[in-house]
């Protein structure tokens, strides 16, 4: 590159729109999963039929600590019986892996292209 790149001047309005755009994008990323009901960990809850500390698998020491926190077997049952669901959906797993991997490959490659321009202008 023999010539220095001279960027266009950005108007105040343009600067303002660019700032708004990024903020809007952040909100979209935060709220979209919420709107589509995709938030939270995938969990399952299996409360045993008779709820006592024993049936919830709590030994006397554990039960004592729960009681110090103000819980009864009934109020603690749901907390104790909720478990994450770690079954892996292979299709989503592969999609996710490809998205993350692809993202990094694209960013690093494209950055390198831009970087060569920076270096040639800086060290010309």
């Amino acid at each position: 590159m023999a010539r220095r790149y001279e960027p266009p001047r950005q108007s105040g309005i343009g600067q303002f729109i660019d700032s708004i755009f990024i903020v809007a994008l952040v909100y979209a990323a935060m709220f979209l999963p919420l709107i589509f009901g995709l938030t939270g960990g995938g969990t399952v809850t299996n409360v045993p039929e008779t709820v006592t500390w024993e049936s919830l698998g709590q030994n006397p020491t554990m039960a004592a600590q729960w009681e110090k926190l103000g819980y009864t077997p009934e109020s603690a049952a749901e907390i104790i019986s909720t478990r994450f669901d770690y079954t892996i959906d292979p299709v989503w797993f592969i999609i996710t892996a490809l998205v993350i991997g692809g993202y990094f490959v694209f960013v690093v490659r494209y950055s390198d292209k831009e970087y060569r321009e920076v270096i040639s202008e800086r060290f010309e």
Partner: peptide, 12 residues
């Protein structure tokens, strides 16, 4: 991904 896969994709 285990448990929070959807948020991961939204953020990507």
């Amino acid at each position: 991904f285990l448990g929070y896969g959807n948020q991961l994709l939204a953020m990507m």
